[in-house]
Design a protein around this nucleic acid. Sequence first.
DNA 1: CGAATTTGACCCGCGC
DNA 2: GCGCGGGTCAAATTCG
Length: 515
Amino acid sequence: MAKFDIMNHSFDHHVLNSLHDQELPVAVPEEQRRLVNEMDFFSDKNPSRDSRNVEIKKESVQQSELNVNTGLNLLTTNTTVSDKATVDKGGSPPGTDKRTSNETELNRMNSENQRLKAMLNQVNNKFYTLQMHIVTLMQQQKNPKAESTEETKMIDGDLEERRRRNVLVSRQFMDLGQALISDKDEPPQSSSEGRNRDCYESPHYREHIPMAAFESQNYGNCGDHENPAFDRRKTDCEEREDSPREQDFQEWTSNKVPKLQCSKDFDQATTRKARVSVRARSEATMISDGCQWRKYGQKKAKGNPCPRAYYRCTMAVGCPVRKQVQRCATDQTTVITTYEGQHNHPLPPAAMTMASTTSAAASMLLSGSMSSADGLMNSNALARTLLPCSPNMATISASAPFPTITLDLTNSPNPSQFQRPQSQFHVPFPNPPPTFASMPQIFGQALYNQSKSSGLESSQEMMRATAAITADPNFTAALIAAITSIIGNVQPERNSSNNNTIRNHSESKMEDSIY
DNA sequence: CGAATTTGACCCGCGC
DNA sequence: GCGCGGGTCAAATTCG
């Protein structure tokens, strides 16, 4: 039952309580958990009484509840001082004997008090451990393949064993989409890809990479060998082992990357599956996102007079992140930047903001689109949940091989948006909940424009606020939870009368999501 | 002179 | 099978 709560992503006190049920010796009702958790022994309902009496009374109640609900047969009886005095009336002579008796009783109460305190401490310790367990599970959800070092330090022995069992169960849910894809296409790994994965498994990187990056990798690391480039590279590696190109590629992917422990399950190349496309108005050739990029190619794409530039991240050797920058064909003041992959290195704050958000978007997209046969439908709900930003718009093309989410950061509705192919997924968003309102407003120039137009004096403020939100490990988890819950309920919206349209998978190409 | 960019060539997937 | 288009490579060129 607790596990089902976890699997339903009800990461609230119900889950904690459920886990309480799991870990505590016996089930403890809600009221008592509150008692235990809050340790409300000193309620001020009877302020006139002296504190010692109140404490004893409370402990008596507590003891009674513990006896009833835990089945523990503690040494003390369910009596108070006054009760005991009533009992004493019968046989004890007045005077010193009675005082001695009371003192003995007080001593006994005190010792019992200590024992109860110890017990409560123990229960609270367990509660704390379970809380950490929950956090661990949530992190496992983000990165089920990689066990964090802190976690390993924190939990040992028996709890470790129980945790593994829980993780196994929760992974069944968390990896839903992943499993679907993995079952579908899991070609043999090339050696170079395996080496590339090393950097992700590095404890060092795990300590520094933004949470969202790993989280995204979890959802995107399943069998992404559909990328033609990677396919081609793999073929190259297999077919001409000694060619200069192969050597260069191996150098790029392995020699310069620190060799660390490798997990076969972890495919870094697969992180390039999802794409996050950002539309923003900018005079510059490309928007500033805090990362360092090196241009490695330029191509004129069909249907657009403006050439498309290809960049790869140069902040770390072997970083798989690439981006394409192209001006919109119909509105050349709009720059379309498409990100692909996850950084495998620490990022500066500005870049981390971008990376976290794109990672979150990518992971949402993948987890949403892959966890059901009707990925497009899910993505529709996903888009509404992920980017309910007004007046911005988000477009999702969840089609294979590159599901792409497009964040439209152009302030005013761009006429070109309405000239997209009719089959394009196009989701206009209502007014956002305040929590998510700032999320897409983080991208360089676009952010600046947004902050100006929305009256915000400092884009730095917004950047910081967004960073705070996106850097919060709970942020992505909350998004996943919300989206997952919606995905379960979403109904197909085919041929709806507004801008929501569906396109055939075979018709979908990357340019559709860009233009 | 090293790093970054440019640009033509090449490879591959996909549609016809 | 062929052609087209996207993506990448790498030699040549430019820049700091």
